[in-house]
């Protein structure tokens, strides 16, 4: 009987332990993942212009790697909602790629790379574009991104 009680306690503790770990597990970042797609913003835009549903299905959740000149860095939100973003511009007017970085990537780390050639990767979240607002252009958004190469010496 005692053995059964001990076993039950162990099972309950294990269940709670797994639940606690799941609840507090860290966010998966692209830094530890190999890029599944290496593409330019213009080629990505071209794919979405041809067929946006097909293109979204092809790239969604994939770790996408893009290289280009870092146009600007933005910090948005406050407190725990604060995020750092790095924006690369394409050769097409109004079309950009916006990479959001995990909390550990400081703004100064990114700011030092503005106007320099960088290679970034992140989980593809989608193409923020609406045909009813062509003035705003379109933004490819990537989450939990990482800097994989910075040619700051160039």
């Amino acid at each position: 009987m005692k053995k059964i009680i001990y076993l039950l306690i162990v099972i309950i503790l294990a269940v709670f332990g797994v639940a606690y770990w799941q609840w507090n597990k860290p966010r998966e970042t692209a830094s530890s993942k190999k890029a599944e797609v290496v593409i330019s913003i213009d080629s990505l835009y071209s794919a979405f212009q041809t067929n946006d549903s097909l293109a979204f299905a092809k790239y969604q959740n994939k770790v996408v790697q893009i290289s280009g000149i870092l146009d600007r860095v933005e910090v948005q939100g406050e407190g725990e909602n604060r995020s750092n973003f790095a924006i690369l511009k394409s050769n097409t007017e109004g079309i950009e790629a916006k990479f959001s970085f995990p909390d550990t990537t400081t703004n100064s780390e990114l700011s030092g790379l503005v106007s320099k050639k960088v290679v970034l990767k992140g989980f593809f979240a989608g193409f923020n574009y609406d045909a009813m607002m062509p003035e705003l252009g379109g933004t490819f958004e990537f989450n939990q991104s990482a800097i994989i190469q910075n040619n700051s010496h160039e």
């Binding site: 860290p26 998966e28 725990e80 959001s100 989608g126 923020n128 609406d130 958004e141 989450n143």
Partner: peptide, 16 residues
């Protein structure tokens, strides 16, 4: 007025 946003760009305090 018009708004558009990606659902995957909503950030939660907990990843789960």
């Amino acid at each position: 007025m018009k708004f558009v946003g990606l659902m995957k760009s909503f950030k939660f305090p907990k990843p789960l």
